[in-house]
Design a binder for these strands. Structure first.
Length: 417
RNA sequence: GGAGGAGUGCCCGAGUGGCUAAAGGGGACGGGCUGUAAACCCGUUGGCUACGCCUACGUUGGUUCGAAUCCAACCUCCUCCA
């Protein structure tokens, strides 16, 4: 039983997506009355989005599934300016080619989560470079700049934090919030967008847009943010062993993606199941109550569901069976990361240090050496004690590969070719 | 334009002539405990063809037997003044 009338807001609250909203009752009423159009912007700062962006993506998906029209805004224009929110220093400025390449990489992931098309609730993708690039500076300032006071802009966290810490904030970055506000207005005009959503760090940027819409167009716009996701122990989401958890499959293997979810903290399982899977809430409530070793089942389910959404059923299944063989049976699954090494080279023998580095288990020979000294390096599950040991064809096991392990969790296979 | 302050390893931050590959903390990695959690404990944390060599304390030069430490110029940032 929910206090909200609309399917969207009820689910939003039930699945813990809501952090702040400009006017939840009014938005609820509007959503109950028919399809609403909302957008979320994504800047093109990297060739792939990572799990930090997954909450907004899942939110768009939920929005669409509850009968509304999502718009994905690619920040082709705003990326050139750089959002200062939550950052201490200015990012390196990206050139047009890099932005275009990043955008191409990012675009692909949305097709997995949203249905695009021309229908009333089909998703649409737009690029703010289309309207930002050709703005006339002076007219823009006269038309919109007069609606922003410096006094107010200085009070926003994105600006205030930077100034308080005596970190430089350039005029370029200072303009970001104005451009984002303008985006909202532009989308309201072009696509009848009435709601902008985003992470909680976007709150300031979003309400600027809501206010601008009211002032220059007398439009009633809404803003809504999701909580900033950290793990139960306070770490930022998405960073781990080898860096970010990328959504694109060419940036991170399905196996590693699956593993990421499988290794989440106990205390996060329930929340993650709500946010990142579409399991019925009753089932989630059952799973999150599991204790001790049993909660591992809930984590596997989480990993399965999350991987299916982002990488497909087959990839999820393969990742799971690989993980089960590797960890539960001490064997090795076919989906472990692997490298090909020429048979002749193997016959001659390769130093362990080099082998670990080639397999991506260490970044340098020095690190491989430390791994060995710490007792964490294994070849075919046998601990390596000699840094000068070599790996050769003789160690190819019955499966035709050599298994290297760094610690308990990181494994790689050497495949002779 | 003037005056003052600052720039150190992935990050924060100590270090004001040799004992400094650079304290301490964070992060990360490895080990232990466990459940492929968390918390906690221990270890490691520039590179290499490794009892040695190379690279590193904003940049470039200089002083010195010897510099992250002294000097000069330059670059960048902060604060105050005009």
């Amino acid at each position: 039983m929910s206090q909200y009338k609309s399917d969207f807001i009820s689910k939003l609250v039930e699945r813990q997506y809501l952090h702040q909203c400009t006017d939840i009752e009014a938005l609820d009423a509007k959503a109950a009355g028919g399809p609403v159009t909302a957008y979320i912007g994504f800047d093109c700062t990297a060739p792939s989005l990572h799990v930090g962006s997954l909450v907004p993506i899942m939110l768009l998906r939920l929005f669409q599934q509850t009968g509304h029209k999502p718009i994905v805004l690619m920040g082709g224009g705003t990326t050139k300016v750089g959002d200062p929110s939550g950052k201490d220093d200015q990012r390196k400025l990206l050139d047009d080619a890099a932005i275009a390449a990043n955008m191409a990489g990012i675009k692909s992931v949305f097709k997995k989560f949203l249905t695009f098309g021309d229908g009333p609730t089909d998703a649409v993708m737009v690029n703010n470079a289309d309207w930002l690039e050709n703005l006339n500076y002076v007219s823009f300032l006269r038309d919109y700049g007069r609606h922003f006071t410096i006094n107010r802009m200085l009070s926003f966290d994105s600006v205030k934090l930077r100034l308080d810490r005596e970190q430089p904030l350039t005029f370029l970055e200072f303009n970001y919030m104005i451009l984002q506000a303008y985006d909202f207005l532009e989308l309201a005009n072009r696509h009848s967008v009435s709601l902008q959503m985003g992470g909680s760090d976007q709150w300031g940027n979003i309400i600027n847009g809501v206010e601008l819409g009211r002032r220059v167009a007398e439009k009633q716009l809404y803003g809504l943010t999701t909580p900033l996701l950290t793990t139960a122990s306070g770490a930022k989401m998405g960073k781990t062993v080898d860096g970010a958890i990328w959504l694109n499959e060419d940036a991170l293997s399905a196996y590693d993606y699956w593993q990421y979810w499988r290794n989440c903290e106990d205390a996060d399982v329930g929340r993650f199941l709500r946010l990142f899977t579409e399991m019925p809430i009753e089932e989630i409530e059952r799973l999150e109550k599991l204790e001790g070793a049993e909660i591992n089942d809930a984590k596997k389910t989480l990993a399965d569901e999350a991987t299916q959404l982002c990488r497909g059923d087959k990839a999820a299944e393969l990742a799971r069976s690989t993980a089960e063989t590797t960890f539960e049976q001490g064997g090795m699954g076919e989906d472990l990361p692997s490298i090909d090494i020429a048979r002749a080279e193997l016959d001659a023998g390769i130093g362990v240090l080099a082998a670990f580095t080639m397999a991506g288990l260490s970044i340098s020979n020095g690190e491989a050496r430390r791994l060995i000294r710490g007792g964490g390096a294994k070849v075919n599950d046998q601990a390596v004690s000699d840094e000068k040991a070599t790996i050769s064809s003789e160690q190819i096991n019955s499966d035709g590969v050599i298994k290297l392990s760094a610690g308990k969790k990181r494994h790689a296979l050497i495949k002779p070719v």
